[in-house]
Design a protein around this nucleic acid. Structure first.
Lengths: 164, 164
DNA sequence: ACAATATAGTTTGACATCCAACTGTTTGAG
DNA sequence: CTCAAACAGTTGGATGTCAAACTATATTGT
């Protein structure tokens, strides 16, 4: 436990977040604020996934990218950028890292000398498969937490993403 | 629109995300994955807030911090760190920036020479108020999108954050 | 009382991310 | 056909984040 187990220090203004673990408070004003709860839920979920992946020495940030490539077969960095929602320049370094570790390979395109196709190597497929297994496991935990309300949640999250 | 309006380039493997704006696709595997939708909804919401705040030349990242201080009166960096869920070292630079712009002031503590209390200045209160107004507006947009399902969503998000 | 331990804040280093500017390539309007 | 505009990828600079190491101060066990 990284933070102090000191007396809760004047809880007049905050609301307790988690019944069990470390004290985490938040301003009372945020109690009903969707954006805030969206953020903490997302961070909690990502953190939990990261813990599972970290135990296997895998980078959770790779998962989306490898999965996109796994489905698509191959893609240019710009396409990849659109599909994963990150800037093209962000992908430059990520792809360099993935390439250096032998998870992907680049093939120069014959019809456009500016660009190249990225595809998974055998190692890349393997890592994708292992990360996917973790994702399945993670999703199972969320299923348990959400029960029959899961579809409702997905619907609302999609609505936010598409309509805001 | 930052990205190319080229032909959608082989949509065999992706699912369209937003009917209107830029093409954004995602792997079919993620279609029912809570973690993924949590992430895109959170990013969309934060981005929308950022646009509104950016127009007023305000940093959205300051909002939580200033609001916590507004409610609490004063706090040490470590307490602030726990309340906003960021590492203590992250706060060092943020507080330096807020201090440099005159939004907060530091007071050495008499009973602990290692630490100090942070509190809002008049300017800080003003910026907090303006960011809060933006947050209210943002929340109103989300209310419109979610309608009566908002409470349901909040309940589920809280459940994820507390139980995962 | 004092040595060992814990804590508060900072510094440094590693990433991920964005944007703006740059290089080389392709396209398209005239 | 040519050259200006669009585009692909990269580079560099800024910010936000964390973890680990560090400095100074407090607390605690004996």
């Amino acid at each position: 436990m990284p933070e102090a187990p000191r007396p809760p220090a004047a809880n007049v203004h905050g609301t307790k977040m988690s019944e069990e673990h470390d004290e985490r408070f938040f301003p009372a004003v945020f109690k009903e604020v969707v954006g805030f709860h969206l953020r903490i839920a997302q961070e909690a979920s990502f953190e939990a996934f990261g813990v599972m992946a970290g135990k296997a020495n895998l980078k959770p940030g790779w998962y989306a990218l490898l999965t996109i490539l796994n489905e698509a077969g191959s893609m240019t960095p710009s396409e990849l950028s659109k599909h994963c929602g990150r800037d093209r320049s962000t992908l430059t370094s990520t792809l360099k890292a993935l390439s250096a570790r032998g998870l992907i390979q680049r093939e120069r395109k014959s019809d456009d000398q500016r660009s190249y196709e990225v595809r998974l190597t055998a190692v890349g497929f393997d890592i994708q498969r292992r990360l996917h297994a973790i994702a399945i496991e993670h999703e199972r935990r969320l299923d348990e937490i959400l029960g029959q309300d899961k579809d409702m949640l997905l619907t609302m999250l999609r609505r936010i993403a598409s309509r805001i």
